[in-house]
Structures are given as structure tokens and as C-alpha cells.
């Protein structure tokens, strides 16, 4: 039920309707819940954009991964020392 797919806003039409591109499919979705402009990325759920996504926030996820890997490297080193 709560599946949501990222898509790029290609066009904004009258009546809170946007044309979005999922990659290989374009579709009209409702934009009532977000303030967006052409070129923004949104998450689409049941035919509605439910949130705007930004490239920066996407990069933030990568940053968390990087931090975790770093922490793990350190804990690996500690383990090697113990054994």
C-alpha cells in the first residue's frame, strides 16, 4: 500500500496536475500535497506526489553509508587487535 516511486516533474498543468517521468514511463499525477517546479523530483504514491525529493538529500543517504563503513573499518581494526 505504502509503495512510493521517485519521478521527475516534467510539466505542470492547470488544476494541480503534473506530468512526471519515472524513467521509461510518463504519467499525470496530482500535485495537491506538494509545492514543486519543473525539474524537481517527487515521490509518487497512489497517483499523488507525497513529497519533494532533492538531490542533496539523496546524497545525504550516501553520506550515512560512508560513515557506517568508516565506523566498521575502525571496529574491524579493533577486532584484529583483540584476536
Amino acid at each position: 500500500m505504502c509503495i512510493a516511486i521517485p519521478a521527475e516533474v516534467k510539466e505542470i498543468k492547470e488544476g494541480n496536475i503534473g506530468v512526471v517521468d519515472y524513467g521509461e514511463l510518463t504519467q499525470e499525477v496530482r500535485l495537491d500535497l506538494v509545492d514543486v517546479k519543473v525539474g524537481d523530483f517527487v515521490l509518487v504514491h497512489v497517483g499523488f506526489a507525497i513529497q519533494r525529493l532533492s538531490r542533496e538529500e539523496g546524497l545525504e543517504t550516501l553520506e550515512i553509508f560512508r560513515e557506517v563503513w568508516k565506523a566498521m573499518d575502525e571496529s574491524d581494526e579493533r577486532k584484529v587487535q583483540v584476536t
Binding site: M1, C2, A4, R30, D32, L33, H45, V46, G47, F48, I50
Partner: peptide, 17 residues
């Protein structure tokens, strides 16, 4: 109309139209 808080706002927005 089933769904959690992900879905409920879509229904609210529609009722407001």
C-alpha cells in the same frame, strides 16, 4: 478508503476539491 498516513492526505486533498 484504506491506508495509513501515507494515503490519507491524498483522500483529504480530493475531498477538498
Amino acid at each position: 478508503s484504506v491506508g495509513f498516513e501515507t494515503t490519507a492526505p491524498t483522500v483529504a486533498a480530493t475531498i477538498l476539491t
